[in-house]
Structure formats: structure tokens, C-alpha cells
Design a protein around this nucleic acid. Structure first.
Length: 266
DNA sequence: ATGGTTGAAGGTCAA
């Protein structure tokens, strides 16, 4: 089984490219992030035509996560238990954001995750990011306490560069999010809860990234960040026979700023 | 020039 994750940065502007990518990549399951549309706007027919079942959650032009699967798609769950909401204003009902979608695909519990960006240090969104990650650790850790042999994949855009090697130049990130000790600790806590980065052993660095900013000629200059991850439970990690980052897909006109990440399961 | 690009409910915000 071939499993992928990809922050597409708008599914409507990228649909042709995603279709073409699916046709040449032969993936069974793909988790998408930043679909940037409401459910009724999601071009699901494009993917059903290719044999994929589709689940999506999106409330607005922001966020939005989806799962496409041609090996079954059942028990769809919007958000994980305890997922924090973004409270736009104190006293108002907090708005649940479209950042997590779970489903069972080919026997694997797959979660498409779009971790909050955090914006700037000191911004309320930074605290929200840390709280969101801690809640994810509690929920996902609990799944393995319930069943140590569960096959779980936590995949998506984590908006964290866990190691210095995961950005092209640490000096550029002084006073920036994505690399702070607190964010790295939050990521490490998920790993310690039993979820391993199953891609890195197959794509060693340095200089290996999944995201390149559109500005500053970051991609041709090879100035990127490794922020998209497939974290696997022990039972899932044992099945991983290979992984790659599809850097080719970042090339050319109309590319997302993120590359797809693909894992091969035996 | 404190910039650069992209996408969306765009005439601004988020990434």
C-alpha cells in the first residue's frame, strides 16, 4: 500500500495538478491539507472518477483537510477528541477549525493533520498551536494505550522543523516560529508517545525539505524546510519499506509550495 | 526598495 500526504494550498486551483500527480504516482491513500474551500466546493468528482473515495472537511477559505482512498474509507472522524478550537474573541463560541480528519483506509487509521501555523512568537496563535499539539499527543497517545498494535498514521503539515537540519539556515529563523524549543518539544512528545518519523530514515539530510516559500527564489536556491511528516505507530512503522519526497512536483508553474511525501507499506 | 509570491469571502489577510 502506498500512502501520501500533501499540503496542496487550495484544491480548486490545484485540482488538475493533483489529478495528474495521482495518475503518475499510483498512491492508494493521500491526505491533503489546506484545501481552502468549503465541503460543497471540493471537486470530489475529479477524484471519484479515478477510483478514490473522498472525505473532506472545510468551513471557509482557510485550512481544510481531506482524505482520498482507493482501499476503503470508513469511520470518518472530523477533528480528534479534545482538539482545541480557535477562540476568535473571548465570550463568543469558539470556532472549530478544519484541521484534522481521520478515517480507516486499508486497515490503517489515517489522520490528515494541518497543525496551526503559529504566526509570530507571542501571538495568541502560537499558544493555540502548542495547545493543539499537546491535545493531539494526548489523543494519539491514548489510541496506543488502548491498542499497542494499532496501525495509525499521523500525517500532514506539522508546521515544525524538528531539527536544525530541517531548515536551510538557522540564523534566518532566530525569533521565528517553527523552530522554537517549545514547538520542537511538542513534536518530540508525539514521537515519544509512540509515533516515529518513518520518512527520514529513507530520505536523510541535510538539505532535504518538503516546503519552499514562493518568495525569494527559495526553491531554485534549495532553501526549504522539512515540516511535512508521516508519523507511524509501532505496528505501522514496521511495515514501512520505503519513502520519498516528490521534489519534482514542486517544480513549474502552478505548483503548491509543499511537495508530496510518499510512504511505501509492505 | 524593509521588498520578493500565492490564494482566497481579495480590495486584505494568511501562509
Amino acid at each position: 500500500m502506498r500512502l501520501a500526504t500533501w499540503n496542496v494550498n487550495s484544491i480548486r486551483s490545484r485540482a488538475d495538478r493533483v489529478v495528474a500527480w495521482l495518475q503518475r504516482s499510483d498512491v492508494d491513500v493521500v491526505a491533503l491539507q489546506e484545501t481552502k474551500c468549503r465541503d460543497e466546493q471540493f471537486p470530489e468528482d475529479r477524484f471519484r472518477e479515478l477510483g478514490y473515495e473522498v472525505a473532506h472537511v472545510g468551513h471557509s477559505q482557510w485550512n481544510g483537510v481531506a482524505l482520498l482512498s482507493r482501499v476503503g474509507l470508513s469511520d470518518v472522524q472530523v477533528g480528534f477528541p479534545g482538539m482545541p478550537s480557535w477562540a476568535a474573541k473571548e465570550g463568543l463560541d469558539p470556532a472549530p477549525e478544519a484541521r484534522a480528519l481521520g478515517a480507516t483506509c486499508g486497515g490503517v487509521r489515517v489522520w490528515s493533520l494541518y497543525v496551526p501555523n503559529g504566526r509570530q512568537l507571542g501571538d495568541p496563535h502560537y499558544d493555540y498551536k502548542l495547545a493543539w499539539l499537546e491535545a493531539l499527543r494526548v489523543a494519539a497517545g491514548g489510541w496506543l494505550i488502548d491498542d499497542a498494535e494499532a496501525q495509525v498514521a499521523l500525517v500532514g503539515d506539522w508546521n515544525i522543523a524538528p531539527q536544525d537540519d530541517d531548515v536551510w539556515d538557522m540564523s534566518v529563523f532566530a525569533d521565528s516560529t517553527h523552530v522554537t524549543p517549545a514547538e520542537r518539544e511538542a513534536f518530540r512528545a508525539v514521537v515519544e508517545a509512540g509515533y516515529a518519523d518513518v520518512v527520514r530514515p529513507h530520505t536523510p539530510g541535510p538539505g532535504v525539505y518538503t516546503y519552499w516559500d514562493y518568495t525569494q527564489l527559495r526553491f531554485p536556491r534549495r532553501e526549504g524546510m522539512r515540516i511535512d511528516f508521516v508519523l507511524g505507530s509501532p505496528a505501522l512503522a514496521r511495515r514501512v519499506s520505503g519513502a520519498r519526497i516528490d521534489r519534482e512536483e514542486r517544480k513549474g508553474k502552478g505548483a503548491s509550495d509543499h511537495a508530496p511525501v510518499i510512504v511505501e507499506l509492505a
